[in-house]
Design a protein around this nucleic acid. Structure first.
Lengths: 197, 197
DNA sequence: GTCTATAGCACGATAGAC
DNA sequence: GTCTATCGTGCTATAGAC
């Protein structure tokens, strides 16, 4: 089934584009079909209804991108681990596909309960857990001062989220992100200075 | 014109409620009228069209709540100034009306260019400027370490924003915010420990 | 300033031919 | 798997009576 998958994929991509611009309600089946180059009725050969399209998109959002399998070893390096993490975070922030999915997430977050739960449990929690694990190791090794690792992880991550949000907003209007792009790295410096022993 | 204002106010309140739930597109003139208890056509005696309702709501969002006229004096007190700011920030985060407006802002942020500009220029910039001014004074007084005050202000504010976002999300589903509510104050402690000389 | 009535359009979805 | 045709509904907005 190579052709079917192709059309289904096209529908999903068109839907992501349109939802990222106008939200779920603004992305009508008509417009999605038009963008793909088929009729509305053809959509229903690939998805039961409009909501199924959204559900499949939402599942794409939370394919957690930041996972280090050798976390313990990396954490021993202290600041350079955090730096690596932020470089990966920055890359995702500027990746076109991921940026669109981020917009979809932010738009629908307040209107879709499933998405809210995934946000709090996956998006939020998974990063927190990974960073807090690393910070805990750094505390044991005496690299950073002692504190609640979970809370410290949130202090580390929330400025990154805010920068990402602003990057996303600026790029919608095609404004320059140059002054903001360096803030990712500046944050690591500031944070390390804040917690290093 | 006491009666006219009353109806207009009711329309605005109903619109805020509905937009906070379903977004601008989901808040139809029909539903707004039904909630107020009048017919759709009557709405147009108070607003030129649907968009005018949104514009008036947006203007309400950015009535900047955090302004200290005696900022210089307060800043000299160091941590307790930051604590005062956060208490005010927390109050706004839990205020019912402000919480609804926050939801409206977050929902429409990615779909409304005017709102985006106001967000970046008012919501973001105004707080940053005030906090950075205070931090600058603290640096001069040797209370905290030296750094770019604007950047440090952002490091102070962005975790607050993230906590506020999570509070807002939890409250939609009427989940407990008890564990999260204390994070506002914990953030001040953590931040002060990070920058205090 | 409210009502009834209605215009004109876009929406999601289905039936049935090819 | 795509098409044409169509249904029923909800939408914003206006006209005109009261």
């Amino acid at each position: 089934m190579p052709k079917q998958k192709n059309t289904k994929q096209k529908i999903l991509e068109a839907a992501i584009d349109l939802i990222a611009k106008n939200g779920y309600r603004g992305a009508s089946v008509r417009k999605i079909a038009a963008e793909v180059g088929i009729r509305e009725s053809a959509i229903y050969n690939h998805f039961k209804n409009k909501e199924e399209i959204l559900k499949e998109i939402i599942s794409q959002i939370f394919t957690t991108p930041f996972e280090f399998n050798d976390l313990e070893e990396r954490a021993k390096k202290g600041k350079s681990f955090l730096h690596q993490f932020v470089v990966a975070y920055k890359l995702v922030s500027f990746d076109k596909k991921m940026e669109k999915l981020f917009r979809v997430m932010m738009i629908e977050l307040f209107q879709n309960e499933d998405l809210r739960e995934s946000f709090l449990e996956e998006f939020h929690q998974k990063d927190i857990q990974q960073i807090s694990k690393a910070l805990f190791i750094m505390m044991q090794d005496g690299l950073i001062r002692s504190a609640d690792p979970m809370f410290m992880a949130q202090e580390f991550l929330s400025p990154l989220f805010y920068i990402r949000l602003r990057v996303s907003l600026l790029r919608i209007d095609e404004k320059s992100t140059a002054p903001i792009a360096t803030q990712f790295e500046k944050h690591v410096d500031f944070f390390w200075e804040s917690v290093a022993v």
